[in-house]
C-alpha cells in the first residue's frame, strides 16, 4: 500500500484494528483540513494486523496523548518535521489522568459538580477515582 511521505505531522501506529475508528472519532478527524490517511488491517511485525493514522500538520498535546493512551494503550506515536522523524515513542498511561476520563460511579461528586476529574493508574488495566475511590477497569472507561 502506497502512502505519500509526510512532510510535517504525526503518525499513530500499532492501533489494534478494532480500535481504529474509535480513535478516528476521538481525534475528530473529520475536522482536519490537511491531509489525513487512515489505514487498517495492515501487516505488522509485532501484531498480526494493525491500524494506522497519518495526520499532516498535527502535533498532539500531552492531554490529547493521554486520551489516546486511555482508549488504546501501547500505540506508537511518531512526530515528523521536514520529512525527519523528530520523536518516536510508545504511548503509555500516565500515573495521573486529570480531566480525561469520567467516573462510572453516578454518586461520585465528579458527576455532580462542574469540576475536573482525577484518576490514578493502579496497574496497566485499572484506574482509581481520586474522589470516590472506586477502581475502574480501563476497558470500561468512558472519556469525559
Amino acid at each position: 500500500m502506497m502512502v505519500a511521505a509526510l512532510e510535517s505531522g504525526s503518525v499513530i501506529d500499532h492501533i489494534p484494528t478494532d480500535k481504529l475508528f474509535t480513535i478516528a472519532q476521538l481525534l475528530e478527524l473529520e475536522n482536519f483540513k490537511e491531509e489525513v490517511v487512515i489505514a487498517n488491517n495492515l501487516d505488522s511485525q509485532i501484531m498480526t494486523r494493525k491500524g494506522l493514522i497519518k495526520i499532516a500538520g498535527k502535533f498532539f498535546s500531552e492531554a490529547e496523548i493521554n486520551k489516546l493512551a486511555v482508549v488504546c494503550p501501547n500505540i506508537r506515536l511518531t512526530v515528523i518535521k521536514d520529512y525527519q522523524v523528530v520523536e518516536k515513542r510508545q504511548v503509555t498511561l500516565p500515573d495521573t489522568l486529570t480531566n480525561i476520563v469520567k467516573c462510572a460511579n453516578p454518586v461520585c461528586i465528579t458527576n455532580n459538580e462542574p469540576m475536573k476529574t482525577v484518576f490514578y493508574r493502579m496497574d496497566t488495566q485499572t484506574l482509581k477515582c481520586r474522589y470516590c475511590g472506586k477502581e475502574q477497569k480501563l476497558k470500561d472507561i468512558k472519556l469525559k
Partner: peptide, 10 residues
Amino acid sequence: RHKLEGAALY
C-alpha cells in the same frame, strides 16, 4: 455531611 462520595475531599 453530603450524600455524594468524595464531596468532603473536593
